[in-house]
Computed example of a mutant assay.
Amino acid sequence: MSQDPDAPALPRGAWPGTLAPIAQLLDSGLELGPVTVFVGENGVGKSTLVEAIAGAYGMGPEGGSTGSRHTTRRSESTLTDHLRLTRGLGAGRGGSEPVFHERSHGESFLHLVTARSRYPGLWILDEPASALSFTGSLALIRGLQDILNAGGARVILSTHSPILASLPGAAIYEVGPWGYRPCAWEDLDLVRDWRSFLAAPERYLRHLI
């Protein structure tokens, strides 16, 4: 994925061009593997990257399959208009939608993944662990791995979860004020922080309470 040379240049003095990861994307492009994971703090540009990738593939920024343009309000950036795909991938077509109203948010999400796991294509997930427990996150990894094992699929996700960041075979990019950089799972700030907290939570809590 790279900047579209036929599109007007995105102004770098206005959002989202002021975000270092967005400037890097436009200047250097980004190679998306079969599994690509973005991690980083809030506000660094993870969701903006994911929204732009979804839009470049023809997906609605608020979710849905290819061709879905549902929106409640215009909150996403115009970055999509400045991107070009070097290789395309059609998203799989789902069947009938599961019934969600009798399930929790997390259960509904996992059921959706399970119900559509037989469809190849592109899966783009923006912080899916926000609705999931520890076991739910593990279940999502299993569901995504089933999708990948079926062949013909690509997964792109952003997350604060060290569990989801461990998705086997993922190309992990740590996103921050410097832009984005490839990083091994064990070297992520996210992983080091969680390990440190779980080893001695009192070291953190005494500064808060």
Rank of each mutant, 00 (worst) to 15 (best):
D81Q: 14
F109S: 08
S77K: 02
S117W: 01
L79T: 07
G106Y: 02
I124M: 08
S108M: 11
L125D: 00
S96Y: 04
L85A: 04
H105G: 13
Y119L: 09
Y119A: 15
L125N: 06
R84E: 03
A91R: 14
L85H: 09
P98I: 12
G88D: 12
E102V: 15
G88K: 00
P98V: 10
L89M: 14
G121V: 12
T80A: 09
V113Y: 04
G90E: 00
T86A: 01
H82Q: 02
L110C: 01
P98G: 10
S96T: 15
G88P: 00
P120S: 08
H101G: 13
T114C: 02
S117D: 08
S117I: 06
E97M: 14
S77H: 09
R87M: 14
E107R: 06
T114Y: 00
R118C: 04
G90M: 00
R103V: 07
E97T: 15
E97N: 08
E97D: 13
D81V: 11
L85D: 07
L79H: 05
L110V: 00
H111P: 00
L125T: 09
T86Y: 00
G90F: 00
F100M: 14
L85P: 10
P98K: 10
H105P: 13
E102I: 14
A91C: 13
D81N: 13
R87G: 13
S104E: 08
G94C: 08
G95C: 07
G121L: 04
G92P: 13
W123F: 10
